[in-house]
Amino acid sequence: MDDTSSQAFAPPAELKRCPIDNTFRIVGKKFTVHILRDMLYQKQKRFNEFLHSVEGINPNTLSTRLREMEKNALVERKVYPETPVRVEYNLTEKGKDLLPILEQMSAFSMKHAPEIFIDGKASSFQQVCGRNPASF
């Protein structure tokens, strides 16, 4: 490792705040990453789909997270004028830009947390998914 690897991250002078902290503020609340995961990989769009797939989430928390994600421009909320009313949430381009981050998180756990696998043996993202993680 080089000498800079052990130093704390100091944002360059032109930055107002740490970009890592900023990203964490957007996606770091409990369940936000799970909702993004289900939108990206399971193509889920509806409130009840998230309610049943996100482990341990309750309706109030889900509603709050979806509103926060909409406020942060990660999702768009579309209301269909039907009876009963149908509401769908779709990822924005900004939300889709989180795919490489989520895949790198997945690759990290596949490499360093073998307990996530049934056989208890670590594997690479490439071995499990048949491709490399997405990148920017």
Rank of each mutant, 00 (worst) to 15 (best):
Ala122Leu: 04
Lys121Val: 14
Val79Lys: 15
Gly95Trp: 07
Leu74His: 00
Leu62Tyr: 07
Lys121Ile: 14
Glu115Tyr: 05
Gln104Gly: 02
Lys96Val: 01
Gln126Ile: 08
Arg37Phe: 14
Ser53Trp: 03
Thr23Ile: 13
Val33Trp: 09
Leu98Ala: 03
Ile116Arg: 04
Ser109Gln: 10
Ile35Thr: 03
Met105Val: 14
Arg37Tyr: 15
Leu66Ala: 06
Arg37His: 15
Ala113Leu: 04
Ile116Pro: 00
Gln42Ile: 10
Val27Ala: 02
Phe50Lys: 03
Lys96Met: 07
Lys43Pro: 01
Arg77Asn: 07
His34Ala: 14
Asp38Lys: 11
Thr92Ser: 12
Val85Thr: 13
Lys111His: 08
Arg67Glu: 06
Phe108Asn: 06
Phe31Asn: 01
Val87Glu: 08
Lys43His: 13
Tyr89Phe: 14
Lys78Asn: 12
Tyr41Phe: 13
Ile26Glu: 15
Leu62Val: 00
Leu102Asp: 12
Gly130Ile: 01
Asn60His: 13
Phe125Asn: 02
Lys94His: 12
Arg86Glu: 15
Met69Ser: 05
Leu99Cys: 04
Ile26Pro: 00
Ile118Arg: 13
Asn90Phe: 14
Gln127Asp: 12
Val33Arg: 09
Glu88Phe: 02
Met69Asp: 02
Lys29Met: 06
Val27Ser: 00
Glu49Pro: 01
Gln104Glu: 13
Leu40Gly: 04
Met110Leu: 12
Leu74Tyr: 02
Lys30Pro: 05
His112Pro: 00
Lys121His: 06
Tyr41Ile: 08
Gly95Val: 05
Phe24Met: 15
Leu66Pro: 01
Lys45Asp: 12
Ile116Met: 05
Arg65Val: 07
Arg25Ile: 09
Ile35Gly: 00
Val79Leu: 10
Gln126Ser: 07
Pro59Asn: 09
Arg65Tyr: 05
His112Cys: 02
Gln44His: 09
Arg67Met: 09
Lys96Gly: 04
Ile26Ser: 06
Thr83Ser: 13
Asp119Gly: 02
Gln44Cys: 07
Pro84Tyr: 05
Glu93Phe: 11
Asn58Val: 09
Leu40Ile: 14
Gln127Gly: 03
Pro81Met: 09
Gln126Lys: 11
Val79Tyr: 10
Gly28Glu: 04
Val87Pro: 01
Pro100Ala: 09
Ile116Leu: 03
Leu40Cys: 04
Lys71Asp: 14
Glu115Lys: 06
Lys96Phe: 01
Gln127Cys: 01
Glu76Asn: 13
Lys43Ser: 12
Pro84Ser: 06
Ser123Phe: 00
Glu88Ala: 11
Met39Cys: 07
Arg25Asp: 12
Leu62Ile: 02
Ile57Phe: 00
Ser123Glu: 10
Gln127Phe: 02
Arg67Gln: 08
Arg46Lys: 15
Phe47Pro: 03
Arg131His: 07
Ile26His: 01
Lys45Asn: 14
Tyr80Lys: 06
Leu62Glu: 03
Pro81Cys: 08
Val54Leu: 08
Leu40Asn: 02
Gly56Tyr: 13
Ser53Leu: 10
Lys29Gln: 15
Met39Phe: 03
Asn72Ser: 11
Leu74Ile: 12
Met110Glu: 01
Leu62Ala: 07
Phe125Met: 02
Arg131Cys: 10
Ser106Tyr: 05
Ile57Leu: 01
Lys30Asp: 04
Leu74Ser: 05
Ser106Ala: 15
Phe108Trp: 05
Ser63Tyr: 11
Lys43Ile: 07
Glu49Leu: 06
Arg86Asp: 14
